[in-house]
Design a binder for these strands. Structure first.
Lengths: 153, 153
DNA sequence: TGATATCGTTGCACTCTACAACCCTCCTGG
DNA sequence: CCAGGAGGGTTGTAGAGTGCAACGATATCA
């Protein structure tokens, strides 16, 4: 399972599909526990929300829900907990008082940075033996797969 | 994000790592809901357990826990529910009365087959536009990644 | 035979999640 | 102008999934 490219006779497509299914679900099962080990302070969802906030320079709870296919009530509770613990802050949009724009609070910035370092270390160690070209291709495949998954729900 | 391979200057490895992290966690968040949509009768964990049982021709609950990094109590409850609903059966090992070997029951075989068909259809549609060579490479990468993840916990 | 290890179950607590009902604010058509 | 609908967000409720700790039963070994 080490080498990158395999022969690709048409008959093998079905096998690839099975493998992709099995390996993706295997990963999914472990993701939560892995996240908990890497950064106990931030759950997988919390980390995701904070990272999104940093990347987007702030956004609304509804955006988070839409982007991550979560119910708005779920996001609401997550955000409430993150605000209570000082990871983020809400700023009511002055032009539309229905809207609360979420921004990272100082503690959120710090925790996110620390968590990112831990994640980087783990992934770096984990993927140390990979050729950079393979890493890049793998990343591309994942992006493409998630895009396809979003398009075919 | 459509084309497969990207340029791979060394400086891009860090970006690839970030992308891989982000896309894998994005997938993980959606996996449970996706499974529920594809086969409402079997949760993601239930499907996984039954598939493992089929593949291994029966195994112990402890094996499942070790393989999927779950607490034995979690597996115990999952197995109890699956037995209650007729998806699997337990057979006490005659040579070691502590051990219960789990096997698929007829209903488990049927449900697993149906779920597999639904999953195949979904994935086939989802990945229809992919070149078989890309599929094969993607599958290889996933296998390799999960192996590395298991080796560096 | 007694100490130790293994397999599994159960009590407990917690997180994550969706759905439904609700409130508040905004917008638009009569 | 204002009534009704739409959008953003919260809360009540319920259920799945999970881990930890304590326990009982069985097996193994000194």
């Amino acid at each position: 399972m080490a080498s990158a490219a395999s022969p690709t006779r048409p008959a093998e497509s079905a096998t690839s599909l099975e493998t992709i299914q099995r390996e993706l679900t295997a990963f999914a099962r472990r993701a939560r526990a892995t996240a908990a080990r890497m950064h106990p302070e931030l759950s997988l969802v919390a980390y995701t929300i904070l990272a999104h906030l940093e990347e987007q320079q702030g956004c609304r709870a509804t955006d988070l829900a839409a982007h991550y296919l979560l119910d708005k009530s779920t996001v609401s509770r997550q955000v409430a907990a993150l605000e209570r613990d000082g990871f983020l802050e809400r700023r009511t949009d002055p032009t539309d008082h229905r809207v609360q724009v979420l921004h990272l609070a100082p503690r959120g910035v710090r925790s996110l940075a620390a968590a990112r370092v831990r994640r980087q270390e783990t992934f770096k160690e984990r993927l140390a033996a990979w050729d950079p070209a393979d890493l890049a291709r793998f990343a591309d495949y994942l992006v493409r797969y998630n895009a396809d998954a979003a398009a075919h729900p």
